[in-house]
Design a protein around this nucleic acid. Structure first.
Ligand code: SF4
Ligand code: SF4
Lengths: 140, 140
DNA sequence: TTAAACAGGATAAAATCAGTCTTAATTAAA
DNA sequence: TTTAATTAAGACTGATTTTATCCTGTTTAA
């Protein structure tokens, strides 16, 4: 049911790149600031890059940069970039994965639930998260 | 992100006991009909019993029976009976589990998301699932 | 040319998943 | 009162996934 730590790291990473919108940021800096193991983060950034959420630059002065504005990156985007398609039950993605699906009364429920979950996760974009964070900071 | 196979088995099991509302049903029968490994199912039924979703009867003529009407058992109940509290991120259950939670802009989002997810899963009770199943059967 | 950076693959320890097995404890019925 | 049928509980196990690390190669600014 839970997202993996890898996904949590990925979200922290996108969060950091949101702050540094204009700059190209090195793995080392992100890893240090966001408390993510450096070599693990390198892998994570590769996945984010393949999903076109970040752009990578190689060579000296290389690093990473957000590929789109924070408002156009949602938690759903990041979760699916790392973990693949979101679903509580695999049969919601492909009914052929379970031989019982044709007559299983729960199967249609998982399909619906998947839609709802994706909708909820899609609502949270990083622009919004930043604002929530600021309100939180203001409070305490 | 996914429920475990154990949870899917548990749901099948509750589904079967819904059909046999009046009777006391043996592990062997449920295991056979729902295609769940018998010895694994025995463990699963213990968890369901501890969560008061089913009643168990020992000895000759023993077996299991639903503890409440299908309308009062939801997918959320079964999922939580098997996997414990539902949450996409553990920090939504206990902010002390992550040292960053006090200033993390994503933390409040996970708390909200958890509420939404529980609400969605709570909507599906087994009375409703049975009806969906019948509609499905009628169609194809 | 060189040093700084990312890319990609191989490897591995630890944790979790998906079970099995064995030994009780309970109970209806012979 | 004995027996056979049934669940309860916990130890154990192999496979898979998670959570990384390390090494070699490629790219690029200076
Ligand atoms: S919900 Fe039904 S169809 Fe989906 S995996 Fe479980 S048994 Fe199969
Ligand atoms: S970093 Fe934020 S979202 Fe991730 S676990 Fe910690 S508090 Fe929760």
């Amino acid at each position: 049911m839970e997202i993996t730590r890898e996904t949590d790291y990925a979200i922290r990473c996108v969060l950091y790149l949101c702050e540094k919108r204009e700059e190209i940021t090195m793995i080392d800096e992100i890893a240090r600031e966001m408390e993510v193991p450096r070599s693990f983060l390198a892998k994570i950034l590769q996945k984010l890059a393949r999903a076109s959420l970040v752009k990578s630059f190689r060579g000296v002065k290389g690093g990473f940069q957000l590929a789109r504005p924070p408002a156009r990156i949602s938690l759903l985007d990041v979760v699916e970039a790392i973990e693949g398609e979101v679903a509580m039950n695999l049969c919601a993605l492909d009914q052929a994965l379970c031989g019982r699906s044709k007559y299983c009364p729960v199967h249609p429920a998982w399909v619906d639930i998947r839609k709802d979950f994706r909708k909820v996760l899609g609502k949270y974009n990083f622009e919004k998260l930043k604002k929530t964070g600021e309100r939180q900071k203001a409070k305490g």
